[in-house]
Design a protein around this nucleic acid. Structure first.
Lengths: 352, 352
DNA sequence: TTGAAAGCGATACCAC
DNA sequence: GTGGTATCGCTTTCAA
């Protein structure tokens, strides 16, 4: 049998409290005794206090669950996601807390994973509205921080996000100010299917994913203000949030007549793909076709991409802080961070 | 007070076993009763069986700890690491197991993180030999799988890796076969400091990190066979495993006289940086300077990089499998996967 | 089917 | 400083 605290206590001839103290409260007993206990434990092959038991007793686990929709590798491949998670990880580190990545498959086990997660709270991020795990998470009755989305179904949920629509509204005005009329929008999750193709604006009315929905709403506002008919806007679904998918999606806007003179993407990854597509066709960004991204990831500056900068790292830090060090005032549990339109060379006046 | 199983049992008027069964063994009680229990639980705001308590009782947690040296964001930025982790995640998903990422800071808390991790086992990967957490992990007395390294200090540890030295020996022969004599080697962790600079071969004798040590050993064998003096080989430490660091390191080999005609890097990330450095100088890979990488990441093919292919995804899957579904025969717990030299355009005959 | 009782392995609290 | 006792919340026999 594996040795336990009790085993060690018996061998040393002390009570279990004392052994426990030897591990958790070194200053509660004499150094010699502590030494003796630790030595015996080592000889016995005692592995130290069982974390599950400790968690049960203390009511604290020392880990938070990270929930997102996609596969591990995909989520971490996105520079924005990486920054966000780095922020969360920073706070976690500071609080000596682990990050439990939960593989969310699509079957029944979605809920099982959430149900069994040994965590003190959940950080949800990039989880489409339709995903089954939302209910499972709420049922757990643990602190929740949602990034990128207000959780209407859970009014007390802490939240850190940005004003998505305001950000794109602003960017949209930048574009319409340049006189663009032939506009295309690229996003993943316009539809739940993972395929790259134009999607009729009718479908777009009920975007299933909060972030895309809001960002499109902002663009819609700006374009409509400028007298552009929303139904004239070409909206293209990208199979995923990747550079390649962005390039593929851009083809639909570039290889038709009239060609789009401005292409806005909901992420820099996609927008970089659009730039790739331009380069392939010998088109110059900002002159022949204007391109706008979102996120202001590291590569955006080098690519001279006009984009909307959002503080991903800070967002992660705040999400982590909200979870690990909750504010007394619930009002402080809802944080909206600023965004900024970063104008670079990829946008300019519409060609005649 | 938060409701517990007991609370629900009392309200419904059954024993806790029955409530427990309602959750864990639906077929052990009548559907009506189960329904009634679940409804009451919902009304009471009972969050379902407490995972910590369940873990304690069952002796199984449903999560494995992932240990690596670097920051989260760094680890996941490396395409090789991402592939590896995707493999692990795949197996984890299949076993309904979570992945606990442990923030390994450098202070005392290194051990605390490991001590408190509520996990069923550890998967160690990319953890330098000198890292303090090795001891803490061994003390936990849990199943361990080590990727990329034999753990001599823990002979029973399961292991999945490749023959690092054989792989680079082979690549080295490819290079010497082309007649190269002016050779440079680029690696991170030649020294424990994170700075990009040439490192004298004397220091290199005691490389602190297993992977770099082995890969260098292979190259050394091949070069020595060809009559190249190991002390004539320029070895350059890269501050980190990134493309930028690779380019920076390459400068030391390219901007000196005589210029290196072959540069071997311990990763494709670094090697891609080397190609960047060549491009900057108008040098042609495979004609002016030959470049070899390691890993065969997705970008390597497009960059026409000669490299050593290793099955990262498969490695991750096996690591996960070894941990979650251990083989009966301990001999099967030590897996060495094949590597393959993939020759592309970045290597060629040494220029006269 | 259902229930009673016995742990799982530790920590908190309060005497001593 | 040290030891007893209750308890954290659940699952698991084993009887009924």
């Amino acid at each position: 049998m594996r040795p336990t605290l009790q085993t060690v206590a018996d061998v040393v001839g002390v009570s279990r409290s004392t052994v426990s103290n030897a591990y958790s409260k070194p200053d509660q007993l004499s150094p010699e005794l502590r030494e003796r206990i630790l030595d015996t434990a080592r000889d016995l092959g005692y592995a130290g206090p069982n974390p599950a038991a400790r968690s049960l007793r203390k009511g604290r686990v020392g880990a938070i669950g990270i929930l997102f929709s996609a596969t591990l590798s995909y989520a971490f491949t996105d520079p924005y996601a990486v920054q966000f998670l780095r922020g969360v990880a920073e706070m976690a580190e500071r609080h000596e807390t682990g990050l439990l990545l939960m593989p969310l498959s699509d079957g029944d086990s979605v809920s099982a994973a959430v149900d069994n997660a040994v965590v003190d709270g959940f950080c949800i991020y990039c989880l489409p509205d339709w995903h089954a795990s939302w209910d499972a998470v709420r049922a757990r009755n643990l602190p929740i921080v949602v990034a990128e989305r207000r959780d209407e179904g859970h009014p007390d949920a802490r939240y850190v996000g940005i004003d998505e629509a305001a950000a794109t509204r602003n960017a949209g005005r930048h574009i319409t100010g340049f006189g663009h009329r032939q506009v295309a929008l690229i996003a993943d999750w316009i539809i739940t299917e993972r395929e790259t193709r134009p999607v009729a604006v009718g479908e777009v009315a009920e975007l299933p994913y909060y972030v895309t929905r809001e960002r499109f709403a902002g663009y819609r506002d700006a374009l409509t203000e400028a007298g552009i008919d929303w139904s004239d806007v070409l909206t293209i679904n990208a199979a995923q949030n990747s550079r390649a998918a962005g390039a593929e999606a851009a083809a639909y806007a570039l290889d038709r007549s009239p060609r789009a003179t401005a292409i806005m993407a909901v992420s820099d990854q996609l927008a970089l793909g659009v730039l790739d597509a331009l380069a392939e066709r010998g088109l110059q960004p900002g002159r022949d076709v204007s391109v706008v991204g979102f996120d202001d990831i590291a590569d955006a500056a080098g690519a001279r991409l006009t984009t909307i900068s959002q503080p991903a790292l800070e967002k992660g830090r705040i999400a982590g802080g909200l979870l690990l060090d909750p504010p007394d005032d619930p009002a402080e549990g809802r944080v909206v961070l600023p965004t900024r339109l970063v104008v670079r060379a990829s946008t300019g006046p519409a060609p005649h």
